[in-house]
Amino acid sequence: MKLVDTLIVLAVQFALLSLFAIGGAMAVIPEMHRQAVDVAHWMTDRQFADLFAIAQASPGPNIIIVTLIGYQAAGFLGALVATLAMCGPTCVITFYVSRIFDRFKDAEWRIVTQAGLVPVSVGLFAAGVFVIARAADHNLVAVAITLATAAVAYFTRISPLWMFAAAGVLGYVGLV
């Protein structure tokens, strides 16, 4: 029964959460962290940071972190349930609402609403980064790697994989 319980929690929590994912996957990182680490104890803070790193180092949308959280919580079924719960409801909403929205492309209310949500989504994205940083940056070398990667990603178009590889090597030799 425990597996079924976990699957239900995953389905309900992530489906509800997805409805508040304004501006993308990062907005719900703090809530997913709370659920996975603090409430359900599916993983430690450090494992959460590890899974985030694995999701970032894999090709595809950032949202696939939920696949990993689901797997960690309840195996393959958990991965499936978490992914479907995160994407299913919002996809159905998008499918129907986007058609209606096309009609109001130039409507004042839509333009104002859209513009009003931009700063909120930026703040939520930053909050997601902050929660990840607190899990990942547990010493000064880690902070330095974060800052260096941010600088390289901001100023250049070097593939992030090179930076991940360099950081992985620094970690392997015991510097992080």
Partner: peptide, 8 residues
């Protein structure tokens, strides 16, 4: 190391 970099 990778997690710190992914954060960046």
């Amino acid at each position: 190391g990778v997690a710190a970099s992914a954060t960046g």
